[in-house]
Amino acid sequence: MTAAWRWTYETADGAQVGNSHDFESRSDAETFIGLEFETLLGNGVDQVRLHEGDTEVYGPMSLHAE
């Protein structure tokens, strides 16, 4: 069985403010963040980190335009 993929949500200073639900694949997780980033920004999320199980795959990734 493979580990679930999940996003952690953070403020700009790195404080964790939530998590996404679990996804079956990295592709599903990345599609979700692409569709939901504006909503997350509106809810005070500045950056996200992607995890596979307990392993951080990448992050922090800013949700703000460069």
Rank of each mutant, 00 (worst) to 15 (best):
D28W: 07
A65Q: 10
G18M: 10
T2E: 14
D54G: 15
D28E: 15
E56P: 10
L41M: 02
T2H: 09
R26I: 00
G34L: 01
S27Y: 11
E30G: 01
E30L: 06
E56N: 13
F37V: 07
S25H: 01
A4M: 13
T11F: 00
D28V: 02
A65R: 05
D46E: 10
E38L: 11
R26Y: 04
T31S: 02
R26N: 08
E66H: 15
D46Y: 00
S20K: 04
L63Q: 10
L40F: 08
P60T: 10
E36V: 12
V17R: 09
F23C: 08
R49S: 02
T39W: 05
G18T: 05
A15C: 04
G44I: 07
N19Y: 12
A3W: 04
G53I: 02
D54R: 15
D28M: 03
N43G: 07
H51L: 13
Y9I: 14
E24V: 15
S27Q: 13
A29P: 07
A3G: 02
T2W: 05
Y9V: 07
V17F: 09
E10Q: 14
T39K: 06
N19L: 13
D54W: 08
D13G: 05
A29C: 02
T11N: 09
G14Q: 07
L40G: 03
F37G: 02
I33A: 03
E38S: 03
A29D: 06
E66M: 14
R26D: 10
D22A: 09
T39Q: 08
T39P: 03
G42F: 00
I33V: 15
E66T: 14
P60E: 00
V48I: 12
W7L: 00
V17I: 15
A4H: 11
Y58E: 08
E30I: 02
D22H: 04
A29T: 00
G14E: 06
V45E: 10
W7A: 01
R49C: 08
A65E: 15
L41H: 00
E36T: 14
T11S: 14
A65F: 11
D54L: 10
H64D: 01
R6I: 07
A12V: 11
A4S: 15
D28F: 01
G34S: 13
F23I: 08
P60A: 08
M61C: 11
F37K: 02
E66N: 14
H64F: 12
T39M: 08
Q16L: 13
T55I: 12
R26C: 12
D22P: 06
V57Y: 03
E52Q: 14
E38F: 02
E52G: 05
L40H: 12
A4L: 11
D22K: 02
E66D: 15
T2M: 12
E36L: 13
Q47E: 05
T11G: 11
G34A: 10
G53S: 03
N43H: 11
L40C: 02
D54Y: 11
G59R: 12
F23G: 04
A29H: 09
Q47T: 03
S20Q: 00
F37P: 06
G34D: 05
S62N: 07
Y58Q: 06
W5A: 01
L40Q: 01
